[in-house]
C-alpha cells in the first residue's frame, strides 16, 4: 500500500536528485554536448568563489533573522492569546490570514508597501515624522535584507503562534495551580511548566521554518532579484542563476548539494538538541 506514495516520491524526486548529484562531478554546460569529469572540482571551486560564500552568508542571515523573530513573536503572541479575554477567537482566526496568503502575493504586497516613491511605509513614517523624507528600502544593501526578513516574518510567525498555542492548551491548568500553591512566580512557571510543555511544538516549528528559510527563493525573486549589490542573493537564487542564466549545470548541481548539506547540518543539530533534552528531562 505504500507503493503509490513511494513511486510518486522516488519517481519525481529520486532520479532527478541522483542525477543532479552525478552532474555535480562534471563540468557540464547546459547546452553543450560534451561533459568533462572534474571530480570534486565544482565543490572546491564553490568555496573559492566570493559569490558562493556571500550567498551562504545571505542565506544564513535571512534564516537566523527571520526564524529568530518568528519564534520570539510567535511565542509571545501564543502566550498572549492563551489568556481568556473577549475577542480572542477573532484574533486567533486572524492569525490564519498571513498563513494562507500565497507567498508571491505576500512578496508583491510588501514590495508595494516598501516602494521608494509611493510606498505606504514611507508615507506612514514621514507623516508621523519618524522619517524626515521618503527613502529607498530595497535599494540599500543591509536594509534590503532586513526588509525582506520583515515581510517573511509577517507571513510566517503566525505558523509558530498557532503551533505553540495548540501546545499551550494541552498543558493542564492544574499544573499551574499546583505550582502557584507551592509559591512559584510567573517567571518560574514559564520556565518550568510552560516552556517544557511547548518544546515539542517549538521544535517542529523550528525545523519546518528553518528548512523553508534555507531554501528561500520566491520572495527574493519577486522583491529584489538578489539586488542591491547582490546583497540579497541566497543559495537557491544562486543555483537558479548558475544553471539557467550562466548555463553551468555542474557547478549549479554542486551549489545545490552544498545547500542540501547546510539544511542537513541544521536538522541534525535540532534533532540532537531534542534528544539531549529528552534524556536530561
Amino acid at each position: 500500500m505504500l507503493l503509490p506514495a513511494l513511486t510518486v516520491v522516488a519517481g519525481v524526486v529520486g532520479y532527478p536528485f541522483l542525477r543532479t548529484l552525478y552532474l555535480g562531478f562534471f563540468k557540464a554546460p547546459l547546452l553543450g554536448k560534451t561533459r568533462t569529469f572534474v571530480g570534486l572540482g565544482n565543490y572546491l571551486q564553490a568555496f573559492e568563489r566570493p559569490e558562493f560564500r556571500a550567498a551562504v552568508g545571505h542565506t544564513l542571515a535571512f534564516t537566523v533573522g527571520s526564524i529568530g523573530l518568528e519564534l520570539i513573536l510567535g511565542v509571545a503572541v501564543a502566550l498572549f492569546l492563551d489568556r481568556a479575554f473577549v475577542g480572542r477567537r477573532i484574533l486567533r482566526a486572524l492569525l490564519i490570514l498571513p498563513l494562507a496568503l500565497p507567498t508571491v502575493v505576500n512578496a508583491v504586497m510588501w514590495r508595494w508597501i516598501y516602494n521608494p516613491e509611493y510606498g505606504a511605509l514611507n508615507a506612514l513614517l514621514t507623516q508621523t515624522h519618524l522619517l524626515p523624507d521618503y527613502r529607498s528600502w530595497l535599494g540599500a544593501p543591509g536594509i534590503a535584507m532586513a526588509m525582506i526578513v520583515v515581510a517573511d516574518v509577517w507571513k510566517n510567525f503566525t505558523l509558530v503562534a498557532l503551533l505553540v498555542l495548540a501546545a499551550l492548551q494541552t498543558i493542564p491548568v492544574e499544573l499551574h495551580d499546583a505550582a502557584r500553591v507551592d509559591g512559584a512566580g510567573g517567571v518560574q512557571r514559564l520556565r518550568y511548566i510552560t516552556l517544557p510543555g511547548i518544546r515539542p511544538a517549538l521544535l517542529v516549528a523550528l525545523v519546518l521554518r528553518t528548512v523553508e528559510a534555507l531554501k528561500v527563493f520566491d520572495i527574493i525573486y519577486v522583491m529584489t532579484r538578489g539586488g542591491p549589490a547582490s546583497s540579497t542573493k541566497t543559495l537557491s537564487f544562486l543555483v537558479y542563476e548558475e544553471a539557467f542564466s550562466f548555463l553551468q549545470l555542474g557547478s549549479a548541481a554542486a551549489y545545490a548539494f552544498l545547500t542540501v548539506a547546510l539544511i542537513l547540518v541544521f536538522v541534525a543539530v535540532y534533532i540532537r538538541l531534542l534528544q539531549s533534552r529528552g534524556v536530561a528531562g
Binding site: V9, V12, V13, P16, L23, L264
Partner: peptide
C-alpha cells in the same frame, strides 16, 4: 526518507526534472 524529500531544495532537482 519521504520527509527527507521535503528538505531537498527544488533547485537541486529542477534540471533533470
Amino acid at each position: 526518507l519521504m520527509l527527507a524529500t521535503y528538505m531537498t531544495p527544488p533547485v537541486a532537482i529542477l534540471l533533470p526534472l
